[in-house]
Amino acid sequence: MQAVTELPTINPMAPVPHEVVGKRRETYDTMTLELAAPEPFESRPGQFNMLYPFGIGECAISISGDPSRTDRIVHTIRDVGAVTHALHALDIGDHVGVRGPFGTPWPMEAAEGKDLVIVAGGIGLAPVRPAIYEALNHRDRYEQFVLLYGARSPEDLVYLDEIKEWRSRFDAHVDVSVDSAPSGYRGSVGVVTRLIPSADFDPEHAVAFVIGPEIMMRFSVTELRALGMPRDQIYISMERNMQCAVGFCGHCQFGNTFVCRDGAVFCYDDIHSYLPIKEV
């Protein structure tokens, strides 16, 4: 008689309850939640989890913490709908269901020995923060480190303390710009794409990670390309309606790929032809 095959113990569709152990307000509509990992949580920069506030629904949220810390899982969440609103309402000691990690990571190894240029817009700084930690924790692996971050207004800037710390480093070029600001604001004002031409990096010997609203990414890529950066050295993180996170449901189909399974990080060279097609 044939032995019964043991079922795998990890079901990617089953959420595992995690306790909220930290909560920090970033802006008027954005919060960072810290969850205790019941067992060491291994993830790579750029991956995401599915978070499930019980009884409300699930949504894909990028991991925004330091990947070298496996005892905590950090997510930065903008309050934009029912599920994210419920996540914002969680208190320390509450539990939330977690599935993950899912998705492709930022290709840190592709940038080793080269300049690393990160262009982030809005809440897009959160999904790329693990890559920033990774790069700064292993600073000697990269040549120039450039972070260009844009937001809607000074009130929308997240991780202000860390940005200040990163800017104070002599081995990092960090520029921040907001789309508009009240008189008296002392920072740079204008769209983030205009920071690209004046940043200090060698476009032919650099790798770029670009994340933010799709239009912002398109214009950022245009600037990078105008400087001479090859398409296969640019990586972008796509956003689509991700529901199952394992490529079953098809909600996040993007051309011949599924963003949840084949992305969210893609090499621009692989998907550039889909971007101008509005039906995709």
Partner: peptide, 19 residues
Amino acid sequence: AARLQATRLQLLDLYASRD
């Protein structure tokens, strides 16, 4: 032209919540 393009992007209010 570059500033017109930048202004258009600013007018789009790219980072605003869509829900």
